[in-house]
């Protein structure tokens, strides 16, 4: 990822170089359209992959870029999911405004939380986020009049998207709706990360004391990115509610926070595509393995995780980048890269 020549040319040049679209990225996003053509029976799964990818991306912003460890990110996902669900239950089933509402609600909660988050690092953060997630889960459980408690929220009904597209049994609408939102929020994240703000986040991740010493106030930055991340997680949760028309305590579950962390680590934290790749691998593997053996499908995923952590500490994408960055690989592919007009 880091090209030394660009770094030497100054931070602005470095950022601009990072912001340039690479061919492989275009290919990736074109490939996300494939499910429509190749596997039309898998569109519901594809929409859940897109939603999970968005959730993973939101975690990546704080964990991968700002170094804020979180074991309770499902709190915001779930808060958004319930916000969208409760709004629809009380008569407003318009999807887009519902999603906005979910994002704002989760963002507000994230903003409030960020004042606590910004004061701590590492182990303390794990405990705080974990506790916060559990508290919210228990609150949702006991507020049965609002959330439906353990039975899940009943009566979530979405109006057709833009007044025209119903959420169908095949997940067609669900997928393109989730995909477009994932893409838009990906663009936002990409822009954020490749900005001076994004750079200072990485500075905080690497050494927050040093950042303060050079005059960059890290707490304000952390509050900002945490709020943005919470809002994004809330939108992902809202999307899940809207595309499935169900909400239950499961959206706030610790398992969800843990899974999303696994997904991000698997794909590669601190890389924009890490969460996306992780979500695809995790959910497709889960779908396929659980089809083969519904009891023990987690086993191969566990093995995969162990292998990735042992041999590819930067996740799958980190490992790929290491391979493609090596001298041998460079020498091998250089002749193929000539068409791009510049050496990689």
């Amino acid at each position: 990822m880091t090209s030394t020549s660009a770094a030497l040319a100054g931070p602005h040049e470095h950022l601009r170089a990072q912001d340039r679209w690479r061919a492989i990225e275009v290919v990736f996003w074109l490939a996300t359209l494939l499910p429509f053509l190749v596997t039309p029976n898998y569109l519901s799964l594809a929409s859940q992959v897109a939603i999970t990818a968005l959730f993973a991306l939101s975690l990546d912003l704080i964990l991968g870029y700002a170094g804020i460890v979180s074991l309770g990110h499902a709190a915001f996902f779930g808060f958004g999911a319930y916000a969208a669900g409760i709004l629809s239950k009380h008569g407003w089933g318009e999807p887009l405004s519902g999603l906005l509402f979910a994002g704002i609600a989760a963002g507000l909660l994230g903003y409030l939380m960020s004042f606590i988050i910004a004061r701590f690092r590492h182990l303390a953060l794990i405990m705080i986020t974990l506790g916060f997630g559990l508290l919210l889960l228990e609150a949702a459980n006991s507020a049965g009049w609002l959330t439906g408690g353990a039975d899940g929220l009943q009566g979530v009904r979405m109006w057709p998207l833009l007044g025209m597209f119903r959420f169908d049994l095949y997940g067609f609408t669900a997928y393109w709706y989730s995909l477009i939102l994932l893409f838009l929020l990906f663009l936002v994240s990409r822009r954020l990360i490749n900005s001076p703000f994004g750079l200072s986040l990485r500075g905080i991740r690497e050494n927050s004391t040093r950042m303060r010493a050079i005059g960059a106030e890290s707490r304000a930055h952390i509050r900002k990115i945490y709020t943005i991340s919470a809002a994004m997680a809330g939108i992902a949760g809202g999307l899940l509610t809207q595309t499935t028309e169900t909400v239950s305590l499961g959206v706030l579950d610790f398992q969800r926070s843990a899974d999303i962390l696994v997904i991000l680590v698997l794909g590669g934290a601190g890389r924009l595509y890490g969460g996306l790749i992780g979500a695809i691998i995790f959910l497709v593997a889960r779908d396929q393995f659980s089809g083969i053996n519904p009891q023990y499908w987690y086993f191969p995923i566990g093995v995969l995780l162990v292998v990735v952590v042992l041999f590819l500490p930067g996740g799958i994408l980190g490992g790929l980048a290491q391979i493609t960055g090596s001298e041998r690989f460079q020498r091998m592919v250089r002749p193929l890269m000539v068409w791009r007009g510049k050496s990689p």
Binding site: S44, L45, Q48, A150, G152, G171, L240, T244, E245, T246, V247, S248, L249, G250, V251, D253
Partner: peptide, 8 residues
Amino acid sequence: IAPDVAKR
């Protein structure tokens, strides 16, 4: 407990 998964 995962109604979204069960539904899908």
